[in-house]
Write a protein that binds this DNA or RNA. Structure first.
Length: 301
DNA sequence: GATAGAT
DNA sequence: ATCTATCAACGCGCA
DNA sequence: TGCGCG
């Protein structure tokens, strides 16, 4: 079966294959979801390399990550060649509606996107703080998010945006002007996390090794490195019930909110009824130059 | 999921 | 014509 | 150099 998406014909294979067997969600359901959400997604994915997390046999089957665009991908799918440690890799970008459709047909349930864009690949235009609980205690995640917001906005004069991951935690995203490279940005992110963790060492940790976290909330600043990715806004997660990574208003971060509050099945109603929580996302970019100086002083006290 | 090679 | 095997990531920290 | 990690 072929779908016409804009000016492109996208072939759809195995449209009735159940990708989420319990929820009864088929491949064509996933494709229709991404078609409906495309206009809300593409502003955040345009010109960014994508890592595909593919599940050709559904969430119960074998999955794999794919970075290199396959030879058989169509010419109209935009790609970019980016340097890697040993050579070069040609990666897909989600720049149009048909791209989302094509990737969904490939069994890519969850696209992950770079923090930088193709025209300045070594300079991220955002920071991501990944708050990942070891258990499912979302209250700890909410408190941590508020601690981050206080430091980032009140002390460091940056703007923050919040998103459920659709899995267990939250992402805090800080839009920045592209005048610092990944090493500089990661160093800054590391400092931020260490200040937060030092303030509440029983609640938070920046330990990479799982066995050293001892039940504490992991503050992951390592996302802010070259060629690292974070889950795409409104991406479907390959978990029971098809939860969706969802941008939120800060004021929503309380009470019964949790990381899987929104799913493929109920997100559309939210989109229809709510304003865009990230309305001012791209207007909010700030330079890290001054925040870096302030952070340096805080770390040396 | 798509393809090449084997039956 | 059908089946089967094969392939599809990588950067960083640290032991 | 190789493993753990996301």
């Amino acid at each position: 079966m072929d779908l016409k998406v804009g000016r492109y014909i996208v072939g759809v294979t195995n449209q009735n294959k159940l990708l989420f067997p319990k929820a009864g969600i088929s491949k064509i359901d996933l494709i229709e979801y991404y078609l409906a959400m495309a206009e809300h997604i593409i502003p955040y994915t345009k010109d960014r390399p994508v890592t595909m997390h593919r599940f050709p046999d559904g969430i119960g089957g074998k999955s794999f990550y794919q970075k290199e665009a396959s030879d058989y991908f169509p010419d109209w799918l935009d790609t970019v060649k980016v340097p890697k440690e040993d050579g070069e890799i040609e990666m897909v970008m989600i720049n149009k509606k048909a791209s989302l459709t094509y990737l969904a047909n490939q069994g890519c349930i969850t696209p992950h996107i770079w923090l930088s864009k193709k025209d300045k690949i070594d300079y991220p235009d955002k920071l991501v703080f990944d708050l990942d609980p070891s258990d499912n205690d979302f209250n700890v995640v909410i408190q941590a998010a508020k601690d981050f917001r206080k430091l980032l906005e009140d002390e460091l004069d940056l703007k923050t945006f919040i998103m459920t991951t659709g899995s267990k935690g939250l992402h805090i995203i800080v839009p920045i002007i592209r005048n610092k490279n990944f090493d500089e940005v990661r160093e800054f992110a590391s400092g931020v996390c260490k200040i937060i963790a030092n303030d509440k060492p029983d609640d938070y940790t920046t330990e990479i090794r799982k066995d050293k976290r001892k039940g504490r909330l992991f503050l992951d600043y390592m996302r802010n490195s070259y060629a690292q990715t974070s889950v795409m806004p409104y991406a479907v997660r390959a978990l029971e019930g098809a939860p969706v990574a969802t941008p939120l208003f800060w004021k929503e971060l309380q009470g019964k909110m949790n990381a899987q509050r929104y799913t493929l099945s109920n997100i559309q109603k939210r989109i229809e009824n709510e304003e865009n929580p990230w309305e001012n996302y791209y207007k909010s970019r700030k330079s890290l130059s001054k925040p870096m100086q302030i952070l340096e002083k805080m770390l040396n006290r």
